[in-house]
Design a protein around this nucleic acid. Structure first.
Length: 640
RNA sequence: GCCCCUGUGGCGGAAUUGGUAGACGCGCGGGAUUCAAAAUCCCGUUCCUUCUGGGAGUGUCGGUUCGAUUCCGACCGGGGGCACCA
């Protein structure tokens, strides 16, 4: 996640310096992250959109044609991928900064981007694949300058693959023998000292075009006046509100169609003028809504002191699809608001939990239309058809549920059939929330059965419950104590599961708890232990099946709400057992299990393990070399 | 091409982060109850096997370790992101 954002920002450090063009005396600024490879430079390349290329193209039809060609291939991204490296020699040359006698030819090249760096590069074919491809194609020199460890300078050659790994500089004058990082620093220092270049940080962050031609967005508070041009709306007239009587019948922007909304007067000269009908991207709002959320009553956008108290958000839960844009922009906004002193917080979100996406098979009928899964029926021969039109249906890729592809399931159907509690329980039970999930209703029966089962446990308890609020007796029968332990272990486990967002594990634990409640109870404390267990069950189930929990809570005699009751607290003493089961391994294979007192010493545990008949039969005739005892876990006996 | 995530029974998925692999659920098989069915309950269910037992097994191959689903290396498959960024 962080990494994706880092890639998106694309910070790089390097050297920016000017070449001097021999023929014209002009400066040609270039940017590089590998100043250490300067001695391996064999040509310069500029973008087809570079001013120098444009100027030359004015009286060079051939170059003009080449520039046009580059622009065309540049638009289709797929073509780019396989496009060959192409260039056009401008006839110009530049002087090498370290050696006046070296003149490098200047090409216009299709792989150089105008909007990154300076739109011009120097190329070191030995250290960059693109440069190498180009050099091979136009038969330009390739001088290796980085020697990988273990290679011999006399024999190391660059074939069709550039060497980009670590190594030692050579063929590089004063840089010879340095490693890459030191060489980079040396060149930059020298460039700055001699005044022909400077250290530069570059980002490849993309522009964010914030205007949208749509209704749902914040109006952009500007007015277009024939005389004054674009004029900002006066601050006392803010905010501009969207009209509510818009129609969406016509294609295009409803604001532009609206008969009156855009008509206004110029804030500067008072003449008739028109409002800007584009609105802002909704990312604009989603980048700081959490601040407004803390202070909904503030007259200003938000009250910084309140925001500082509540934020940052401890746990943000969202889908991966917002990994970069929304979450990154929100960080930028927060950073900016922090810089201008509106808030003290530096980051908006402390923790992020990315939910998986819900996927479903897509269906298309013979008219090439997407089909809702609920309309798809299976024929006897296994073929698919639409229940409404009868057209043949083909199953396509499994994809993220989306309205446009109609591979969505309406939860209302399963809510109608099983109720909201069961539906919710089922969704939580199946898959950990961070994983992508392929939607299926297989298994919902189990959720329904559980729902019914716990209802019965409460309405027909196997022993008479003690009255509400009665004290737990000091002495308990074995079965009552066992149930109490189950209750408290479950409380402890579920609390941790929910904290960690492992809802599916919490569900599994509740299934086990229900099984523990079903066992026969007798003797002292049975009624009390059962009441405790059932109340615990209700409270633990409450976040996942709230309606059912309230009903059961009433059956247990309460007139309050289970959701308002405090979360149960585990008694630590009841969550630990006096004995512990341990596996006994001989040469790494489980041969027996033993049950020993929890606090038994390693020596005693070893003795018990060695005393096992099964173990003896496996070590018979062998010499015991080593015994490893991990208390509470395993005993491993190594023998041969 | 580069980066990230992921791979465990017929299926969804557990495994206290190096310590009994397969919890729990689904499905399937068997049984109880019933005139019968529904519902419910119990038992079994990784694979192989010469079956009171033994062997193999967490994508594949190797390594570290007394011990590896877990750590390391290479490869294969699936998903996602970036993509001529100098």
């Amino acid at each position: 996640m962080r990494l994706m954002q880092e890639n998106w920002i694309g910070r790089s450090e390097g050297l920016k310096f000017d070449f001097t063009i021999v023929e014209t005396g002009e400066k040609l600024p270039v940017y590089t992250t590998r100043p250490d490879t300067l001695f391996g430079a064999s040509f310069c390349a500029i973008s087809a959109d570079h001013p120098i290329a444009a100027k030359l193209a004015e009286d060079n039809a051939e170059l003009e044609a080449f520039v046009q060609e580059c622009r065309q291939t540049g638009t289709t991204e797929e073509a780019l991928e396989k496009a060959d490296k192409n260039g056009y020699h401008t006839g110009l040359h530049v002087t090498h900064p370290f050696d006046d006698s070296i003149k490098l030819p200047v090409y216009v090249a299709n792989f150089v981007l105008m909007d990154y760096g300076t739109g011009a590069i120097f190329a070191c074919p030995a250290g960059d694949q693109r440069d190498l491809d180009f050099a091979r194609k136009y038969d330009l020199p390739v001088l290796p300058i980085v020697l990988p460890e273990g290679e011999d300078a006399a024999s190391f050659e660059i074939g069709t693959e550039a060497y980009t790994g670590p190594g030692t500089l050579y063929n590089s004058g004063f840089l010879d023998g340095l490693d890459i990082d030191t060489a980079k620093a040396t060149v930059i220092d020298r460039a700055e000292a001699e005044g022909w270049g400077e250290r530069m940080v570059n980002y490849r962050l993309r522009d964010w075009g914030v205007s949208r031609q749509r209704y749902w967005g914040t109006p952009i508070p500007f007015v277009h006046c024939d005389d004054c041009g674009v004029v900002p709306v006066k601050s006392e007239d803010l905010p501009i509100k969207l009209p509510e009587d818009v129609s969406f019948d016509k294609p295009g922007n409803p604001l532009a169609h609206h008969p009156t909304w855009k008509k206004t007067s110029c804030p500067a000269c008072g003449k008739d003028a028109e409002r800007e009908t584009d609105t802002m991207d909704t990312f604009m709002d989603s980048s700081w809504y959490f601040m407004r959320f803390c202070t909904p009553d503030a007259d200003e956008p938000f009250d910084g002191s309140v925001v500082d108290e509540w934020l940052p958000v401890n746990q943000y839960i969202g889908g991966v699809e917002h990994a970069i844009l929304h979450l990154l922009y929100a960080r930028f906004f927060t950073r900016a608001l922090n810089h201008i002193g509106r808030t003290k917080i530096k980051e908006p979100f402390e923790g992020l939990f990315t939910q998986g996406m819900v996927n479903h098979v897509t269906y298309k009928d013979s008219n090439d239309e997407w089909v809702f899964p609920e309309l798809v029926r299976t024929k006897e021969d296994g073929g698919l058809y639409r229940s409404d039109t009868g057209l043949v249906v083909k199953a396509g890729r499994i994809e993220k549920m989306s309205k446009s592809k109609r591979n969505v399931i309406d939860p209302d159907d399963i809510i109608d059939q099983y109720g909201a509690d069961t539906a919710r329980w089922f969704v939580l039970s199946d898959s950990p929330p961070d994983r992508d999930l392929q939607w299926t209703e297989a298994g919902i029966e189990g959720a329904w059965r559980f729902n019914q089962r716990i209802c019965r446990l409460v309405s027909e308890p196997s022993v008479a419950l003690s009255p509400m609020g009665s004290d737990m007796p000091t002495s308990l029968s074995d079965s009552a104590l066992a149930l109490r332990k189950a209750s408290h272990k479950t409380i402890k486990g579920i609390t941790a599961d929910i904290e960690g967002l492992h809802f599916n594990k919490a569900v599994a634990r509740l299934y086990e708890f229900a099984a523990a409640i079903s066992v026969k109870l007798e003797g002292a404390g049975a009624g009390e232990a059962m009441r405790e267990a059932l109340e615990t069950l209700v409270l633990l189930v409450c976040p996942m099946m709230p309606h059912l929990a309230e009903e059961m809570w009433q059956q247990l005699g309460y007139e309050t709400l289970a959701s308002n009751a405090p979360w149960p607290k585990a008694e630590e003493a009841l969550t630990v057992d006096a004995t512990v089961k341990m596996a006994v391994l001989v040469n790494g294979k489980v041969r027996d299990t033993i049950e020993v007192a929890k606090d038994m010493s390693k020596e005693d545990v070893e003795a018990v393990a060695m005393g096992s008949e099964k173990v003896q039969s496996f070590i018979e005739g062998k010499t015991v070399r080593k015994v490893i005892v991990v208390l509470g876990r395993i005993v491993n006996i190594v023998a041969n």
